[in-house]
Write a protein that binds this DNA or RNA. Structure first.
Ligand SMILES: [Mn+2]
Ligand SMILES: [Mn+2]
Ligand SMILES: [Mn+2]
Ligand SMILES: [Mn+2]
Lengths: 146, 146
DNA sequence: GCGGAAGTTTAGCCTGAGCTAACTATTTTG
DNA sequence: CAAAATAGTTAGCTCAGGCTAAACTTCCGC
């Protein structure tokens, strides 16, 4: 029989760690590198706190870090960063399609993205796709939102 | 002109505080009283931690507490407890309708319930109601989940 | 190539929220 | 009604993840 697929042991990380890895991933995507000052700005925390966490992320194997130089991601780190970015995107598209205030969407998404299992992500992705492909349904619901 | 409706200053509490108030609320609903030992069991934390937090909740005006006796909720506390219980219920019904594993639903809901604005709650309530009233749509989506 | 600006790191501190161990109070039961 | 069982509290710890101030490194314009 085929070997039973190892159910990726959903090692769970703190919201803080996930936010850092998501942010580092986004910065590297967007500009090719991630600097302490930019991570700090985006997460709205002090540069000192960022340095501190980056050292932890290095020690735990999520990034490779050289003092005063940049940060790059290991495969493990990139995997998490991508995953959170994906959740962020799905949640944002779903909520934004209802016309909610972007600031509110962002706040909710920043929190919710850390508490979504793979199954729930699939459900939300499905809902998002349905609404994007079915404008009548979306309109009907938005009308009820009044 | 009518005085502008005060936009309930969404004072935000920690997930921990919200979990305690939700739990105390649920216990009082269900059995008429809330005891340290039951709160601890339901939240899976030590009794000592519960005692400690209850004292804080009293100091901050969410519950009234008498040593070795019970806890009752103030209006402020009950309001929060009810609110979280409501979010918990909506999220649970929405996710459960897709047939997700109850354990997974519970884990996701326990986290997500602390990060949902009033607007997002309205959207999710709407989605839940639509799916509950439109079994064909639900079936179609569930088939795609397969 | 030097000096100041910008960026980074270190040290030391704080708070929230958990824990265990030991003690105290209350309730139950023989 | 005494003592055992159960419930609740206190003291003292720990750890994550923030912060500021000060020191250090790098970069850039002159
Ligand atoms: Mn986030
Ligand atoms: Mn995010
Ligand atoms: Mn919760
Ligand atoms: Mn809950």
């Amino acid at each position: 029989m085929p070997t039973k697929r190892q159910e990726t042991t959903a090692h769970v990380h703190s919201p803080a760690i996930e936010d850092y890895l998501e942010q580092i991933h986004n910065l590297i995507e967007a500009k090719g590198y991630a600097r302490v000052v930019d991570i700090a700005k985006n997460l709205r925390i002090s540069q000192a706190s960022v340095t501190n966490m980056i050292q932890r992320l290095d020690a735990e194997g999520y990034v490779i870090y050289e003092r005063y130089r940049g940060v790059i991601m290991t495969d493990a780190g990139r995997k998490i960063g991508q995953e959170i970015a994906r959740r962020h995107e799905v949640l944002t598209r779903l909520l934004a399609s209802f016309g909610l205030d972007p600031q509110t969407v962002h706040e909710d998404v920043e929190g919710m993205e850390h508490h979504i299992s793979r199954q729930t992500l699939e459900v939300l992705t499905l809902l998002m796709e349905e609404l994007e492909g079915n404008p009548e349904l979306l309109m009907k619901l938005k009308r009820q939102l009044g």
